[in-house]
Simulated assay, not measured.
Amino acid sequence: MSDDWAAQRTEAARVQAERLRARQDVEHEEAEALLRDFVRAAAAAGLEPEPLQVKGYGGRGTARTSLRGWYLRQDRTAGVTTDGTFYVLTAPLTLVDRVRGARVAPQRPPMILGAGGKDGSSIELVAALERLLPGWRNTAT
């Protein structure tokens, strides 16, 4: 009986993990579509992109990147590039990174930036984009 119970629990956990991944995929796809629409609207509105930098963990310095785009958070820890790709702009920086520049990998965007962080540090992606270009959704069709 114990083996049967363990097998049932394992299967239940697997099914729950699959459902969570499916929900996360839907959220990421919605966020990716929002970012693509925003980039088109920003280009049409003439919103100038800027060079994006990476912040070191714990506020320890910054490093250049080859990326250009817009910061999504006021603390400059997330950004979107001119092609609609999302980046988390924090990393463990070495002295070499600070001098030569750092590379960051693109990530799938969330609908809420900073979710699970300190109170008041999260912001909905739509609100972050609206702060950058008010009314952009009306022009992104």
Rank of each mutant, 00 (worst) to 15 (best):
S2L: 12
W5P: 00
A7D: 06
Q8P: 00
R9T: 02
V15Q: 12
V15S: 10
Q16T: 01
R19S: 11
R21D: 11
R23K: 15
Q24A: 09
Q24G: 02
A33I: 07
L34T: 02
L35K: 05
R36F: 10
D37C: 14
F38N: 03
V39K: 07
V39D: 08
A41R: 05
A41H: 07
A42V: 04
G46I: 14
G46W: 15
E48D: 14
P49S: 13
P51M: 02
K55H: 13
G56V: 12
G56A: 13
G58V: 07
G59M: 08
G61S: 03
G61V: 10
A63F: 06
R64T: 03
W70N: 01
D75P: 02
R76A: 10
R76M: 06
A78S: 09
A78M: 11
G79K: 09
G79H: 12
V80N: 06
T82W: 12
T85H: 07
T85D: 09
Y87K: 08
L89R: 02
A91W: 00
P92M: 13
L93K: 09
L95Q: 09
D97M: 12
V99Y: 01
V99T: 08
A102Q: 07
A102C: 14
A102L: 07
P106W: 11
P109T: 08
L113D: 01
G114V: 15
G114T: 13
A115C: 01
A115T: 01
G116Q: 02
K118M: 06
K118L: 12
D119L: 15
G120I: 11
I123H: 00
I123P: 00
E124K: 09
L125F: 12
V126I: 11
A128Q: 00
E130Q: 09
L133A: 00
L133R: 00
P134V: 03
G135Q: 01
G135F: 03
R137C: 03
R137L: 03
T139K: 02
A140V: 06
A140T: 05
